[in-house]
């Protein structure tokens, strides 16, 4: 058994996994990773089940140190500068920390959440089948709250094996796709305004919801409906006309009309849009959205086949990967 010690951490960094399903009927929100694709990639690189528990690192910097043995880790999601014992570590590639090695993560560039997977996963006691932190409900293990400096996570000692990496397609900067409804009939011309306008993620956003800033979306019959169920990606419009996209820590029901729903294949991409960056929505049919969901499931199914061993993990290789990542982020930045 090794340990991973938290030496520096900002807010919004917590243990997350695939989520906690089955008790939404009692108001228990699923929680889980904001970007499920990045969660799966990080886990895949260290040989874990794709939706095992990892550390979801918020947009600010963070630091860790390995104790009492070796620890294998991998990072995916929002790119940022990462060093292991002073050497740069590329994203989407595993790495083994020796006892005492530091792992430092700078603030995220062009994204929000990075996923730090640990070989063997995070050790804890699941509630409703999940270790995911839901601070409001007092759930999550080993700590039912975001991580703090001084927290020590019990982890497996790294097994002797080659490091692994995966090449991912560059993140698309295309509009975020939505299926209109379930209450789009509560809106008239405002539906057009919603689809034509540029939106920005507000700084008051969190794991419950992304509050959007843009033109006011007005209701036809007022903003009170009888509360009904919500899903990850529900876009509700409260009285002030500024939409809120409900994220994994959402309430399981809500009483504001929901103009549209972000498709499941694009929800992680939305979660990664940084505060203040402009983006747009585009409407698709349920059939198109389900085709995308099936394509995403197929991508995840074949993910292990895309992983390659790193035969010669020298510094040139690492730098080259870091540059590829950097240009993908630059390409995204240039579109805004």
């Amino acid at each position: 058994m090794s340990k991973l010690l938290v030496t520096a951490v900002g807010p919004a960094t917590s243990v997350q996994d695939g989520g906690r399903y089955g008790a939404q009927r009692y108001g228990l929100t699923p929680g889980g990773a904001m970007d499920r694709l990045a969660l799966a990639v990080a886990n895949c690189l260290v040989g874990n089940p794709l939706f095992a528990a990892v550390i979801e690192v918020g947009p600010l910097s963070a630091g860790f140190v390995a104790r009492e043995g070796k620890v294998r880790v991998a990072l995916s999601g929002a790119e940022r500068h990462v060093e292991v014992a002073g050497h740069p570590l590329p994203f989407n590639q595993s790495c083994t920390l020796n006892d005492g090695d530091t792992l430092t993560l700078a603030a995220a560039r062009g994204g929000t959440f990075s996923y730090l997977a640990i070989e063997g996963g995070v050790k804890g006691e699941p509630t409703f089948g999940s270790l995911a932190v839901n601070a409001r409900a007092g759930l999550g293990s080993p700590f039912p709250r975001p991580l703090q400096v001084g927290d020590a996570l019990d982890v497996d000692a790294a097994k002797p094996a080659a490091e692994r990496r995966v090449q991912l397609p560059a993140l698309s900067g295309d509009p975020i796709r939505v299926v209109m409804g379930p209450q789009d009939n509560e809106f008239g011309e405002a539906k057009g305004l919603f689809l034509e306008s540029e939106w920005k993620v507000s700084a008051t956003s969190d794991r419950m919801g992304y509050r959007l800033e843009g033109p006011a979306i007005t209701h036809l019959h007022g903003y009170n409906i009888v509360s009904d169920g919500t899903v990850n990606g529900s876009i509700q419009v409260p009285g002030n006309g500024q939409p809120i996209v409900l994220m994994p820590d959402r309430g399981t029901s809500g009483g504001y009309p929901k103009i549209a729903t972000v498709i499941s294949a694009d929800l992680g991409r939305l979660a990664q849009i940084p505060v203040g960056r402009g983006f747009r929505f585009r409407a698709v049919t349920v059939a198109e959205a389900q085709a995308e969901a099936r394509a995403m499931a197929e991508f995840l199914r074949t993910l292990p086949d895309r992983v390659r061993e790193v035969r010669d993990p020298d510094i040139t290789d690492a730098l080259q990967n870091a540059n590829i990542a950097g240009s993908a982020v630059n390409a995204l930045d240039s579109e805004t």
């Binding site: 009927r25 009692y26 108001g27 228990l28 509360s227 409260p238 002030n240 309430g251 399981t252």
Partner: peptide, 27 residues
Amino acid sequence: AMIGFTPGFSYLSGLDDSLQMPRRQNP
């Protein structure tokens, strides 16, 4: 009538019509 929003939040039917109040504009 339902349980939702947050764990255990119980929504009740049967409120006297005269107690009806629109929700706050800013939650």
